[in-house]
Design a protein around this nucleic acid. Structure first.
Length: 513
RNA sequence: GGCCCAUUCGUCUAUCGGCUAGGACGUCAGAUUUUCAUUCUGAAAAGAGGAGUUCGAUUCUCCUAUGGGCUACCA
């Protein structure tokens, strides 16, 4: 059964692409799109391509391309082909494919499916302010300056004189164009409301997104286009382009993903929301080369890539059961476009934290310790791995992020220099100094300072003297930790050792009484 | 404004005509604990509104409302 399905599906090898524009850091929504593409490709034993869509020379941002690659590598999303990976369909950067596009522009022109237009941006702006809802289409193109209205000789002369122009697609009105979307089903739109989109600009000799996209997807043998919902309105135009180019038969299947929305209020998630609400919207920290502004990243904030992947995967898709913790392999196995939701998902940062917490618990102490080491270094702590691992074992269940480990464990590395005021008020009693002095003597006599043994001895000392357990223990904790928090008291003393424990009690007594 | 898409607890979602509408995050309350957390148990919390189809609609259709997207010589 399963095999039959597989054979049908792989009749044509699945090939998907992630095609970002290098205009800045990769947005978390883009990351999710890349992830879904990856899951789909891997599930079908297919390939994923990284194509850089840099046809807008104005908006190019240096470093963005490398950032995208590094981000996805961090998350475990690997490409089979593309910029940075190579492959037989190179080049994968659209700015390097000028000649290829030109050929198809000429073909469209020759077939009368597109035309040359000389209207300047200024003229068009004027037209738009003059006529409300102005659209360059079948109803208006015969009033404009283009190869349809000008004599052929005039058109040629203008081009020869170096007059800048664009090539526009010629859309015939009155036809229902149907897009068959894998997530949304049939979406139809009338060609009458489509405008004659610009396909090519003579100024930089580059195509616009629409043309480049179709040409590349065709040439790169893309079978499935999985992209954000913002592309749904232009999908009919793309369908038309496949037809105009004679590629309808091999047109890829479309799947338009719902968008990631702001956690509060309205609209789609943006970089600003992260700054405003205090969470990253980028996978890696990003420094804007123009403004120098730094935006935080998931990696730098202490997220585990597995947690980010798991969290994002479930924002707009679910396996159909109650399982929420899913590894990349499980996701690959279970993913399906049919189970993607159709509506936008508000970005729930709290849930993201929970995922990270879960993944930290899953990882073994050595891995967590290794991630914690750099954090310790920033606090000037130099210590051995063995010790850090033991600390991690005691405190990791209390944190959502690696860097929170410091707040939970600083006292393991530095003896308290101050004592929390509130705790002192609440826990440091009249007789505390006296009792703890006695406790020091008790501790001094213990040879086996293991948690269990120390606990037994200290507790029986408390009991035999009729002391109050809470009074002693809370004051004890205050001396050793500096405040009212932390793991099991005797686990702490075992790690610190006898001498250090006694030293801390001594110091606290001298400071507090 | 026009066009397209969507609409189940505060949030992410399950349900593919027959349920006391399930789970998770968050919230609240208990329990555990020498502290703070963790953990465990429990609670509150939803089918936008209106028509229709049907023996029966959260589920199908239509209308309205609301939300989102697009409407560039940007992607």
């Amino acid at each position: 059964m399963r095999n039959t399905k597989k054979i049908i599906m792989t009749e044509k090898k699945v090939r998907v692409r992630f095609a970002p524009s290098p205009t800045g850091a990769l947005h978390i929504g883009g990351v999710r799109t890349a992830l879904y593409n990856y899951l789909f490709a891997k599930q079908h034993g297919g390939e994923m391509i990284l194509r850089i869509e840099d046809t807008d020379s104005q908006r190019f941002v240096p470093g963005a391309e490398q950032y995208i690659i590094e981000s996805l590598e961090w998350l475990g999303i690997r490409f089979d082909e593309g910029v940075g990976y190579g492959g037989e369909h190179a080049p994968y950067r659209q700015s390097e494919r000028k000649d290829i596009y030109k050929k198809y522009v000429d073909q469209l022109l020759k077939d009368g499916l597109a035309y040359i237009a000389f209207d300047t941006p200024q003229e068009l702006d004027a037209k738009r302010s003059e006529i409300s809802n102005f659209q360059y289409d079948a109803s208006t193109r015969m009033q404009m300056r283009n190869s349809l209205t000008l004599p052929a000789a005039e058109t040629e002369k203008l081009i020869a004189n170096g007059q800048q122009y664009v090539v526009r697609i010629k859309i015939e009105p009155g036809e229902e164009i149907v897009v068959n979307d894998l997530i949304r089903g049939e979406v139809s739109i009338s060609s009458s409301i489509l405008d004659d989109k610009v396909l090519y600009k003579s100024a930089d000799q580059l195509p616009t997104y629409h043309l480049a996209n179709i040409v590349d997807d065709h040439l790169m043998e893309i079978t499935h286009v999985i992209r954000g919902e913002e592309w749904l309105p232009s999908a009919p135009l793309h369908v038309l382009l496949y037809r105009y180019l004679g590629w309808s038969e091999s047109m890829p299947r479309f799947a338009h993903l719902p968008l990631l929305l702001k956690p509060d209020g309205n609209g789609k998630l943006s970089k600003r929301d992260g700054d405003r609400l205090g969470f990253p919207v980028f996978p890696l920290e990003w420094k804007d080369p123009k403004t120098g502004d730094i935006s935080s990243g998931y990696r730098e904030s202490g997220y585990l890539p597995e947690a980010v992947v798991n969290f994002l995967a479930l924002l707009g898709w679910n396996p159909g059961n109650d399982q929420e913790i899913l590894s990349m392999d499980e996701l690959i196995h279970l993913f399906s476009l049919e189970k993607c939701s159709k509506s936008g998902a508000k970005f729930d940062y709290e849930k993201g934290k929970w995922f990270n917490h879960k993944y930290i618990q899953q990882k073994d102490n050595a891995e967590i310790a290794a991630l914690f080491m750099p954090v310790l270094e920033t606090h000037g702590i130099k210590t051995d791995m063995e010790y850090v691992m033991r600390v991690v074992a005691l405190v990791k269940e209390r944190v959502n992020f690696i860097k929170e480990l410091w707040g939970q464990s600083a006292f393991f590395f530095n003896a308290p220099v101050a004592y929390d005021e509130k705790t002192v008020k609440k826990r440091w009693k009249e007789d505390s100094a006296q009792r703890l002095t006695e406790l020091m003597a008790v501790l001094q006599d213990i040879d086996d300072f293991s948690s269990e043994n120390t606990e037994t001895i200290v507790k029986s000392w408390i009991e035999n003297n009729g002391y109050h357990l809470g009074n002693i223990m809370n004051a004890f904790r205050l001396c050793v930790v500096g405040e009212s928090k932390g793991p099991h008291m005797f686990d702490i003393t075992e790690l610190l050792g006898k001498e250090e424990t006694i030293r801390r009690i001594q110091k606290a007594i001298s400071v507090l009484s």
